[in-house]
Amino acid sequence: MSFTKVAASALAITAVAGVTHARDNVQVAGSSTVLPYASIVAEAFGENTDFPTPVVESGGSSAGLKRFCEGVGANTIDVANASRAIKSSEIETCASNGVTDIIEVRIGYDGIVFASDIDGQSFAFTPSDWFLALAPKVVVDGALVDNPNTDWAQVNADFASQNILALIPGTKHGTREVFEEKVLLVGCEETGAMQAMIDGGMSEDDAEDACLKVRTDGLSVDIDGDYTETLARLDANKAAVGVFGLAFYENNTNVLQAATMSGVEATTDTIASGEYPVSRPLYFYVKAAHIGVIPGLQEYASFFVSEDMAGPDSPLAEYGLVSDPELEATQESVDAGETM
């Protein structure tokens, strides 16, 4: 075998590959919560236009925004999906790397549901229940003590006896932040634990941070993987209660039942109206400098928020996205290319 020949042909092919055109597809990365919606849009975009199907990568909101802020050019991504708003620190990083014009697009809302095995008991939770079940310290008889609750019946007398085992998203997930803010913090205030901490000499900020902590004795399990992992854990231990996205839950209603939160059932309607408390907006961010350079980028952004894609009676809504009541305003700002 002649190795010089093999090496030469290797070099030749690499060289040929190297001189082909710059990127002609839109490159998207970011939140795994937004990924299903973005992939549905990308697929429909490829089907309905002459542009190639955009590449949609997963990896998480923070990872996506980090790559988004790496700079301008064909070897950086054009769109970052995020299940939370961009932080000011990220905008600064972006600016220092030359990414100054960012278009923020809110695509709709995502509900977070608390689901348990379909054959188990039906829960009707309040934020206080979750705080009492998961906090490391709770108020008992006016004093702050280590959480004594190990059974849901201890948390709320309305529940049947069932060991507490909560499968909550790990700290790298955007969902965790929403869970902390809209459930644990609210519960902390409602049960008076926050006031007790402040009375005990903590500053308000410290007390707020302490409210977001969860117990570490094994009754609360952080799931760092996807919802499929949560489902697998729940399947293995039927007594567990898991935190899921609404769309994931709706795809698995044959094995899961969702609990109500503060008496409200999680549906696209109750989330859109704001009645269901645990929801969050979903975004994507577009690099304005790439519009006109990467073919199809402007069209992709407009297509994403069009009535046919993200409206109340659209493929995204069917999959579980709570469509944004202010979608029309978003469409206008996307078409006008308004930057942040």
Partner: peptide
């Protein structure tokens, strides 16, 4: 492959030609 962006909705089309297959997502 996770880090270089080959995971997600990526493999949505066949490459246009043999050589361009190396450089198409």
């Amino acid at each position: 492959l996770l880090l270089i962006g080959m995971i997600g909705l990526v493999a949505t089309s066949y490459p246009e030609g043999f050589v361009s297959g190396f450089t198409e997502p």
